[in-house]
Simulated assay, not measured.
Amino acid sequence: MKVAIGGTFQPLHDGHKALLRKAYELSKNVDIGVTSDEMAHKGRVRPVRPYRERVEALRDWIKQEIGVEAHIFRIDDPYGPTLNEDYDYIVVSAETYPMALKINAKRKELGKKPIEVYRVECILAEDGRPISATRVVMGEIDVHGNLLRRRK
């Protein structure tokens, strides 16, 4: 079994951790694509830490929590290697689910079999709304979804 997962992973929050745990439950053979600095900054207004720092935090958490050495690589587009390599699963959030559908549509155009999509529901913050990197960076919640300030 081979699993694909991708993202910016910054800050690494409980939603990301749920995705990663599910990926490693499916298989220990997990390919993790982390967005390049160029891709991470494209269209974003929030600050994003450098690629190397994001990968280091991700690698450390996986080693400590999952107990394996992570296979992490840089991706420069939303597809990563999913159009060229075969995977049994792609693990996504509700937010990234549409991208998984695009990946499978492109794979179909290329004559490749689809990747089974495993969608992990969003982890909710204390206020019942999804935990997101943007909310964490904006100081609204912490990485566990605890409220830091009330919305107006």
Rank of each mutant, 00 (worst) to 15 (best):
E116D: 13
N104W: 06
R107H: 08
I103R: 00
V137Q: 02
D60N: 14
G111V: 07
D77W: 03
G33L: 05
V55W: 14
F73M: 04
K22S: 12
L58W: 04
M138W: 02
T82G: 04
V45F: 05
R151D: 03
G15R: 00
A133K: 04
L20K: 02
K17A: 12
K63L: 15
A70C: 11
L58R: 03
V30D: 07
L12W: 08
D127W: 11
A100I: 03
E25K: 11
D88H: 09
L83G: 02
I90P: 00
L20V: 09
K22F: 12
H13E: 11
E25A: 13
I115P: 06
N104G: 10
L20G: 07
E38Y: 06
R119G: 02
R49Q: 13
S27M: 06
M39Y: 14
V30T: 07
P11D: 14
S36K: 12
H41I: 12
P130R: 08
T134L: 01
R149A: 09
A40D: 01
L110D: 07
Y89L: 07
N146R: 15
L124Q: 08
Y89W: 15
T8W: 08
D77I: 07
W61Y: 03
M39T: 00
E65A: 14
E109T: 12
P130D: 11
K63I: 07
V3T: 11
H144G: 02
N29Y: 04
I131Q: 09
K102E: 15
P11H: 13
D31T: 14
E121T: 10
V120S: 06
A125N: 11
I75G: 04
I115H: 09
R54F: 12
G139L: 00
D88A: 06
G33I: 06
W61V: 01
P47M: 06
K22W: 08
S132T: 15
D76H: 03
D88S: 12
A125W: 11
E56K: 15
L83A: 01
D77K: 03
V45P: 00
V136Q: 02
Y51D: 10
D88N: 14
A23V: 08
L101C: 10
S132C: 08
T134Q: 02
G145S: 02
M39W: 08
V120C: 10
D88P: 00
Y118R: 14
H13N: 11
A100N: 00
K28D: 15
G145V: 01
D76V: 02
W61T: 00
L58Y: 04
L12C: 10
N104F: 09
H13G: 10
K108N: 13
D37Q: 03
D86Q: 05
V55M: 12
L58D: 02
G7P: 09
R44M: 13
E95W: 04
H41Q: 12
A100T: 01
E95I: 03
K102P: 01
I131W: 04
G7M: 09
V68L: 13
T96N: 04
G7R: 07
Y79N: 00
G67P: 01
I141L: 01
D76T: 05
T8Q: 07
P98L: 09
K102V: 10
D86W: 00
S27E: 05
P47V: 08
